[in-house]
């Protein structure tokens, strides 16, 4: 079925884009905090926050994240999709180790491995093996949506 193949490619591109935006958001917020250090409950701190480009990069990525997420949710089931977004925990972990020299403890690496394993399961779950589970049929539900025409 070419339809399910297209759906799968759409999910892949969408989730990779979302992952990139998510990672940029987290790293940019961290960088914002670093440049505005030390945190203070005053106007000077707010000025430091908005005085560096990082906060604007973070907000732009947040916006990109929102539009990508809303596009994915048109068809993607919310349960598996929300779980899949947590791949950003893994990318942020490695990016933080590289950029900010944060520790990669054995526990964190184990957690990252389990997350990746879960994402692989979700990818297989949505692959062509189960086209009957593809999302368009799931756009109807108890919140008052009925599949039109």
């Amino acid at each position: 079925m070419s339809g399910s193949g297209r759906t799968w490619r759409f999910y892949l591109c969408g989730f990779l884009l979302l992952l990139a935006f998510d990672t940029i958001v987290q790293l940019s917020f961290k960088n914002t905090g670093v440049h505005a250090f030390p945190p203070e409950a005053n106007w000077a701190w707010v000025q430091r926050v908005f005085g560096h480009p990082w906060i604007y990069i973070a907000l732009a990525a947040y916006l990109g994240n929102f539009f990508t997420w809303m596009s994915l949710l048109k068809h993607a089931p919310i349960g598996p999709a929300f779980a899949a977004t947590h791949l950003d925990v893994v990318t942020v972990m490695f990016a933080s180790a590289w950029i900010f020299h944060e520790a990669l403890t054995p526990m964190r690496l184990l957690g990252a491995g389990v997350i990746v394993l879960g994402i692989v399961c979700l990818a297989f779950a949505e692959s062509g093996a189960h086209p009957e589970n593809d999302a368009p049929t799931e756009a109807k539900g108890a919140l008052g949506v009925t599949a039109g025409s």
């Binding site: 925990v89 184990l110 491995g113 394993l117 879960g118 692989v120 399961c121």
Partner: peptide
Amino acid sequence: AGILLVSTGVAIV
């Protein structure tokens, strides 16, 4: 399985 694994992984992290 995928959702429970991701959830467990986040908890382990």
